[in-house]
């Protein structure tokens, strides 16, 4: 097979990945919808029991059983689809790498794809370990699908060789670490946003107000403490990796540009991101900053990361502007 057709195969597989992920997202959403229906049934039953009086015969409604089954089937289907999509995703990057005869993270298109792969992998690991409910999938896959869709339309670059500055084994180390950390950070940013959503939902319920969309989505989410813990553990994993990525970048910069740190825009934004995540880790241990404030810091840090990759690469002139 020629390099060109290999590259095209990789691109096609990435599109397939997006489609499969989107289907998985529908599966998760389907599971939630049937659950919601069940909740409605249960609450109707509960209120009718109250009306009839406690101790009345609690007959399980056949409709409920059906919806529960449909819900779990839909959820299982979604998780299986996510796993399939993940495998296709890996393949697409492998073909890219063979087509270009290098690591498949040499430009922004490939980089974005790899970052999304890390986020999905992390999510699958969390579900497999029972740290989060798979229902979270709908909220995770939506940004992943959007992100991959944007990457493969706006940032598309055909497979090709690297500019000389990138021709170094450090691209394997520095960029791989950066991708690992970024995928995790973006996932934690999504979870932190969901935490804020869930907190608002809880607060409105406590205040006896009826949550409206999008706050009403909070009902589908894991509890706030769970989301907070997940967001923290993902950041706790990613922060040392990010630190390592910056340091590896410094070592590479020292051999490529003659200095390990020079406040190049990309370096500056990596530093801002790093400082904000350091702030998050401290905030979580400081009275008065736990919970919502810390979550906002995590969201701001993820924002800085996005600026670091996309705004800096596209709009700001610097040494990293080659992707």
């Amino acid at each position: 097979m020629t390099d060109q057709s290999l590259g095209q195969l990789g691109d096609g597989l990435l599109l397939a990945t997006v489609v499969v992920y989107a289907l998985a997202m529908l599966g998760y959403a389907g599971e939630q919808a049937s659950r919601k229906a069940r909740r409605a049934v249960t609450s109707v039953r509960a209120s009718s029991q109250v009306l009839v009086g406690a101790g009345g015969p609690s007959v399980s409604l056949p409709a409920e059983t059906v919806t529960v089954e449909r819900a779990s089937r839909s959820g299982r289907f979604a998780i299986a689809l996510t796993a399939c999509g993940w495998a296709v995703h890996v393949l697409s990057l492998v073909f890219r790498g063979f087509a270009a005869h290098r690591v498949p993270w040499g430009n922004m298109y490939e980089f974005s794809s790899a970052v999304a792969l890390v986020a999905v992998s992390f999510f699958l690991v969390l579900v497999a370990r029972g740290r989060v409910e798979r229902a979270l999938g709908a909220f995770v896959m939506l940004p992943v699908v959007l992100y991959l869709g944007l990457a493969s339309s706006v940032l598309y670059t055909a497979a090709g060789p690297l500019v000389p500055a990138l021709n170094s084994y450090w691209i394997k180390i520095h960029v791989a670490a950066a991708i690992m950390a970024s995928g995790s950070f973006l996932l934690s940013g999504v979870v932190a946003l969901l935490y804020l959503l869930r907190s608002r939902y809880d607060a409105q319920l406590t205040a006896r107000r009826t949550p409206h969309f999008p706050v009403s989505l909070g009902a589908q989410l894991p509890t706030a403490p769970v989301l907070d813990r997940v967001s923290y553990s993902v950041i706790a994993f990613a922060f040392p990796v990010w630190t390592f990525a910056i340091i590896a970048g410094g070592i590479w910069a020292e051999s490529a540009w003659g200095r390990y740190w020079g406040w190049d825009p990309k370096e500056t934004w990596s530093f801002i991101t790093w400082v904000l995540y350091a702030g998050y880790l401290h905030a979580r241990a400081t009275a008065g900053w736990k919970g919502k404030k810390a979550a906002w810091v995590a969201v701001a840090a993820a924002g800085a990361l996005i600026v670091d990759y996309y705004v800096v690469n596209i709009f700001v002139v610097g040494l990293h502007s080659y992707a």
């Binding site: 934004w269 801002i272 400082v275 350091a278 702030g279 401290h282 700001v316």
Partner: peptide, 16 residues
């Protein structure tokens, strides 16, 4: 914590 956030904020003009 405050100084950390100030440090991040102060770096922003340097990044743009």
């Amino acid at each position: 914590l405050l100084l950390l956030f100030l440090l991040a904020l102060a770096s922003v003009p340097g990044g743009f």
